[in-house]
Computed example of a mutant assay.
Amino acid sequence: MEHKRYIVHIDLDSFFVSVERKFDPSLIGKPVLIGGSADRGVVASCSYEARKFGIHSAMPMRTAMRLCPHAIIVRGSHGKYSEASAQVTKIIADTVPAFQKTSVDEFYIDLTGMDRFYDCYQFATDLRHKIIRETGLPISFGMSSNKTVSKMATNEAKPNGQLFVQHGREKEFMAPLPINKIPMLGEKTCQKLYQYGIEKIRDLQRADLRFLQTVFGQAGRAIWEKANGIDYGDIVPQSDRKSISTENTFGNDVADHKTLESVLVSMTEELAFKLRKENMLASCLAIKVRYANFETHTLQEKIALTSADHILIPGIKNLLKRAWNRHRPVRLIGVRLSQLCQGNYQINLFEDNEEKIRLYRALDKINFRYGDKTVCRAAGMEIGTRNFNPFMK
Rank of each mutant, 00 (worst) to 15 (best):
D105Y: 01
G343L: 06
R210G: 08
H310G: 14
A308P: 02
M152T: 04
D256S: 03
T306D: 08
A50C: 07
N325K: 10
D11R: 10
I7F: 00
L33Q: 00
Y194F: 08
I333T: 11
A292F: 06
R358Y: 07
A98R: 11
E199V: 15
V375S: 06
I198L: 05
F15A: 02
E172F: 01
L319M: 09
C376A: 12
G79R: 13
L12D: 06
F99M: 06
M143V: 09
V165M: 08
Q87F: 15
L320K: 12
T102G: 10
E134G: 13
A84P: 08
H310C: 13
N228M: 03
E269G: 04
K130P: 13
V149P: 01
M61A: 03
F23G: 12
G334H: 09
L209T: 06
M184A: 12
F107V: 01
R21W: 01
D208P: 07
A86M: 14
A308K: 12
L185Y: 05
R358Q: 09
W324T: 02
S150V: 02
R322N: 09
R369T: 02
R358T: 08
C376E: 15
P329G: 09
S47P: 15
G251K: 15
A38C: 12
Q100W: 01
E261L: 13
A255P: 09
A71M: 04
E20K: 03
Q238I: 13
E225L: 11
L12Q: 10
Q342D: 07
F273M: 09
E269D: 01
T385N: 14
F391V: 08
H56S: 08
I235E: 09
I223M: 00
C68T: 06
E83W: 04
T95A: 08
A44F: 01
F388V: 09
T89K: 08
F53C: 01
S283M: 04
I316V: 10
H129A: 10
F117R: 13
P183G: 04
K101W: 10
D110E: 02
A98K: 13
I179G: 08
N160D: 07
Q218D: 14
A308Y: 11
I235K: 04
G334W: 06
E20Y: 02
R221G: 11
A379C: 08
V74K: 01
Q346F: 13
L299F: 07
E278D: 11
I132M: 06
K4H: 07
K130I: 11
F99V: 06
N180D: 15
G36Y: 00
I347K: 14
S144P: 04
M174C: 05
F250I: 06
F16P: 04
H9A: 05
D256C: 02
F173Q: 05
A157C: 05
D231L: 08
N160I: 07
